[in-house]
Amino acid sequence: MLASLALAPGAFANFLTPKSGGSPNADSIAELYKLVLYIAAFVFLVVELTLLYSVYKFRAKKGAVAAQIHGNTRLEIGWTVAAGLILVVLTVITFIKLPSIINPPNSDPKGLVLSASTTEPSPPNGRKLTICVTGRQYIWRYTYGAACQQNPFTTKLPYSYQQMVAPANTTVVLVIQSTDVIHSWWIPSMGGKVDAVPGYTTYTWFKAPYAGAIYHGQCAQLCGRNHAAMTALVKVVSPTDYQAWIQQQTAAINAANQQVIQLRRVLTATGNL
């Protein structure tokens, strides 16, 4: 049920606010956005209503004479300062909200902790789960475990494509890389986007509250012809289910590897390779 809620099918989705609900950083961004929206709505109404009023009120009529005003220094200074003050307010609320957006919190006690590393953004107690996200034309690959940072392709870690599986209530740090062109990792409900730039490593994190939810996202940076098809899903499961899935995935990958090894042996022996 939560999964269908997260996918929000229907004609209209978020009209005035960004998506959230999949992670505290997304929630914080949405809160910050709403604060800005209130101020913006106020400014919008004041300016547009003044404009409408003046166009309505001061239309040329018989005998009307335009006031020959060249300016008013006090007024000029007044609205310059007012505009400046609004921006100071926006700056202050942004920097108040910022830590909750960029700093990952601790995992919940019932959450899962698999690794501790110091080279990437870390929750206060340093305990988190690391998943490497590797963008390539036109699919996302996820490699599970802190060792993925050495080389997600050669380390013998469980991996999956397109759909990520992640434990709930756990601080998950994502290590984002690209092997070809620039991609952008973005699951709207789970926080802001982070570009995957070849030659660079970027990070983000999420901490999903609900097991059973599936969040949709897709590559946000034009990466070639199949850009539109480069979708991503994050399936949130309970920590125990996550561990079971990891084992199952590892076993499945190993079995597949064994099959390939066997096939290679047969092909080599029969002279077909």
Binding site: P18, A30, L32, K97, I101, W186, G192, K193, V194, Q221
Partner: peptide
């Protein structure tokens, strides 16, 4: 506002 832009950019 860059944290908001992380949601809106692109």
């Amino acid at each position: 506002i860059f944290p908001v832009d992380w949601q809106l950019n692109d």
